[in-house]
Design a protein around this nucleic acid. Structure first.
Length: 592
RNA sequence: GGGGUGGUAGUUAAGUUGGUUAUAACGCCGGCCUGUCACGUCGGAGGCCGCGGGUUCGAACCCCGUCCACCCCGCCA
């Protein structure tokens, strides 16, 4: 038999296969040399099978076996034999072993820098440098398989729903607004640059104008921004756009997709329709637009009572509300308790986020607070009101933040997450999906001294808010939505503007003049003159979805060749310098 | 750009008043071993203590700078 062509994988032989002559190929995971007998665990991505060598097979065969090294690649011919009493219950193939009759070493491996085993202690930078070894480890390989199955199930789903997968250009033009672009110089057009797409946004809208109706694409996107555990500079979106759509039709489509993915890939039934929260509600109750809804633990807004009583005798409160800030709290109620040390740790946590401190009060009795020197002159009526709003009883603790809304929400949302984990409020295996709707259309940017789009400049305002575009742009809500799973933003989208007049009013609100609009998005505006259907869409982060479905903590665990926090590929050492000649061809000179 | 954590044999870690020859486990090399599956057992080799300065009679340890990895803030339409 030919040792190059396996008859089975290392994962699929079972007891009833006993007696068959087989060929297996794979990597030597471990070798146990007992002197007169050699056991080899042979691995491929499908599993592990024990191969045995004994001296009766001949001297050459046996000494070859004794010389095998971990991670060498071999082909083995042998006879499947039942292991009887020696069955290994840890292995799916544990009922059998392959008694080798021939072996060929295709490739002798050097000692690897770390052992390729399910459990590894190797640091992540080492694993990234030798990513091809890390990918041999089942826990990582399994994630890559999972990712394939998600992509496959998504393609099948959209195909059944009548969607077309259409490719869009990677070499495209830089657009203002949004993330920093990765630029690609054009050799044939010196001084000009392509930009890699942050998303195929404009192209998918043009496909709607083109009458393609229902588009999707599993597509790479690029953003030159700083990385996080859940952010890579290149990432994959399941990108969708649909004509004649409203918020409900997109939500229904995506709920169907996620139900299908979880059913097919994870065997989990998720209930739909998903919960919906407006952006205002999410920020009010959870301090974030991507709340983890596996637990409740809401923030309590104390701004109104504090403002009504002009701070209630607490100087810090008065100053906060006078400056337009807010006061919010988290209540820790029985049976949960916090020690002083616990609270100090929580204070460290919010200080790391930029908070000045963590005001706390332990309720000893109604109106009688300890740990709270700041509250010693507080109006007893305000105290009573706060106790009521926080629904606290003696023994409970209130944690407070006050100041700029953005900061207060950030700090308390972070505490909420920590407290839920500490008190075991997260039910394992739960999937808390939710739609966050009615995002603000625009947000004032201090840095740029103008309004910028919260989603993107083509997002449609809610019809009821259109009249506010000129006078109260900050109050306009958008037909934009995010889908959130367990505190992660899985994706987001919007109904788009398909009317030229409305589009130019939004551009005006954004401070984008007619000339700039024409030069940057002229092709889109022009397209809208020739019959644009109402349309909308969404993009889901495939990497994040895979991460959550895999139960991983980092995108790096579900991306075959990920980059580090400094956007470096430790294996190829990209980005790297280039030859002077290449730069010359591109007419690029580096600044000294 | 800012904050935090870490960096000591191939790997993972230990290493306190700054003091002889820097430990251990796994891995590696050599010997023995026919039912192992984290094989066992005996022996051995292996170190720019991230890098560069400084303090000191003397630095893995103290100080300054710097690089790398991870986490977070800013940033991410």
């Amino acid at each position: 038999m030919d040792l190059l062509h396996r008859t089975h994988t290392c994962g699929n032989l079972r007891g009833p296969d006993a007696g068959k002559t087989v060929v297996l190929t794979g990597w030597v995971e471990t070798k146990r040399d007992l002197g007169g007998f050699v056991f080899v665990d042979l691995r491929d991505r499908h599993g592990v099978t024990q191969v045995t060598f004994d001296p009766t097979g001949g001297n050459v065969l046996f000494t070859t076996a004794q010389d095998l090294r971990p991670e060498s690649v071999i082909g083995v011919e042998g006879v499947v034999a039942s292991r009887g009493r020696n069955t290994n219950k840890e292995l799916p193939t544990g009922e059998i072993e392959v008694r080798a009759t021939r072996v060929e070493v295709f490739s002798r491996a050097d000692t690897p820098p770390f052992t390729v085993t399910d459990e590894t202690t190797a640091n992540e930078d080492l694993r990234l440098k030798y990513r091809y070894l890390d990918l041999r480890r089942r826990p990582i390989a399994k994630n890559i398989v999972l990712r394939h199955r998600i992509a496959k199930a998504a393609r099948d789903y959209f195909d059944r729903q009548g969607f077309l997968e259409i490719e869009t250009p990677f070499l495209t033009r830089s657009t203002p607004e949004g993330a920093r672009d990765y630029l690609v110089p054009s050799r044939v057009n010196p001084g000009r640059f392509y930009a890699l797409p942050q998303s195929p946004q404009l192209f998918k809208q043009l496909l709607m104008v083109a009458g393609m109706d229902r588009y999707f694409q599993i597509v790479r996107c690029f953003r030159d921004e700083d990385l996080r555990a859940d952010r890579q500079p290149e990432f994959t979106q399941i990108d969708v756009e649909m004509s004649f759509a409203d918020v409900d039709s997109i939500a229904g489509l995506i709920e169907g997709l996620l139900q299908q993915l979880f059913r097919e890939v994870s065997g989990v039934e998720i209930p739909a329709p998903f919960r919906r929260l407006t952006w205002d509600e999410a920020v009010r109750d959870y301090g974030t637009d991507k709340p983890d809804l596996r637990f409740d633990l809401r923030l309590v807004d104390l701004t109104v009572p504090v403002r009504t009583r002009d701070g209630g005798g607490v100087g810090l409160f008065r100053k906060a509300v006078e400056a337009g800030g807010i006061v919010k709290a988290l209540a820790v109620r029985a049976p949960n308790t916090l020690t002083r040390t616990d609270i100090d740790k929580l204070e460290d946590q919010v200080k790391q986020l930029g908070s000045k401190g963590l005001a706390r009060a332990k309720i000893e009795a109604p109106g009688q607070w300890t740990l709270a020197p700041w509250a010693k002159d507080m109006d007893p009526h305000l105290k009573a009101e706060i106790e009521h709003l926080c629904a606290v009883n003696p023994g409970d603790v209130i944690l407070l933040q006050f100041g700029r809304a953005r900061d207060v929400n950030l700090h308390l949302a972070s505490l909420r997450q920590t407290l839920a984990r500490k008190f075991g409020m997260v039910k394992p295996g739960e999937h808390a999906f939710a739609w966050i709707t009615d995002f603000p259309l625009l947000e004032y940017s201090e840095e740029e001294q103008r309004y910028v789009a919260c989603h993107h400049p083509f997002t449609s305002p809610r019809p009821v808010d259109v009249e506010k575009l000129e006078n109260a742009p900050g109050a306009v809500k958008a037909q934009a939505y995010d889908i959130v799973l367990n505190g992660f933003e899985l994706g987001g989208g919007s109904i788009r503007i398909h009317d030229r007049d409305l589009q130019s009013r939004v551009f005006t609100a954004l401070g984008i003049g007619e000339a700039e609009a024409q030069s940057k998005f002229g092709f889109l505006l022009e397209a809208f003159r020739y019959g644009a259907p109402p349309h909308g869409g969404i993009a889901l982060g495939l990497d994040r979805l895979a991460m959550l479905m895999a139960g991983a903590d980092s995108l790096r665990d579900v991306v075959a060749f990920p980059k580090t926090a400094r956007a470096v590929d430790l294996m190829t050492e990209a980005p790297a310098g280039v030859d002077e000649r290449q730069l010359e061809e591109l007419r690029i000179r580096l600044k000294a």
